Simulated assay, not measured.
Amino acid sequence: MPETIGFLGLGLMGHGMARNIVEKGYALTVSAHRNRAPVDDLVSRGAVEVKSVREMAERSSIVFLCVTGSREVEALIRGKDGLKAHLKPGSVIVDCSTADPTSTVALAEELAAVGIALADAPLGGTPVQAAEGKLSAMVGATPETFARIKPVLDTWAGAKIVHLGGPGDGHKMKLLNNFVSLGYAAIYAEAMTLATKTGLSPEIFDSVLRGSRMDCGFYQTFMGYTIEGNREAHKFTLANAFKDLTYLESMADAAKLVNPIGNAVKNSFGMAVATGGDGAADYVPHLPEYVGRANGVDMTPRKLRT
Rank of each mutant, 00 (worst) to 15 (best):
Q129I: 00
P38H: 02
G277Y: 06
P38F: 04
T155R: 02
P143N: 03
Y225A: 03
L12R: 13
K243A: 05
R302N: 12
M251V: 12
D154N: 06
P260N: 07
D100I: 06
H163N: 05
M223R: 09
R36D: 14
T246P: 11
I187R: 02
D282E: 08
I187L: 15
L12W: 08
G90K: 06
R45N: 11
V73C: 02
E23W: 06
I149A: 03
G133S: 03
N263L: 15
D298N: 13
V180Y: 08
G170L: 01
V291H: 01
K80M: 02
L8G: 01
G183S: 05
A121Q: 00
M214C: 14
T102Q: 15
A27P: 11
A233G: 10
G277N: 09
E190S: 09
K160R: 15
G124Q: 09
V39Q: 05
A47F: 06
D100V: 06
E110H: 11
V297L: 05
G79A: 02
A75N: 10
P89A: 03
A274K: 15
V152E: 03
Y188S: 04
H234N: 11
A75Y: 13
G133P: 12
S52W: 12
L200D: 05
G183Y: 12
G140Y: 04
G25S: 06
M214F: 14
Q129M: 14
A32G: 04
M214N: 13
I116K: 01
S44D: 11
V22R: 00
G262K: 02
K266Y: 11
G224Q: 01
A37Q: 15
K134C: 11
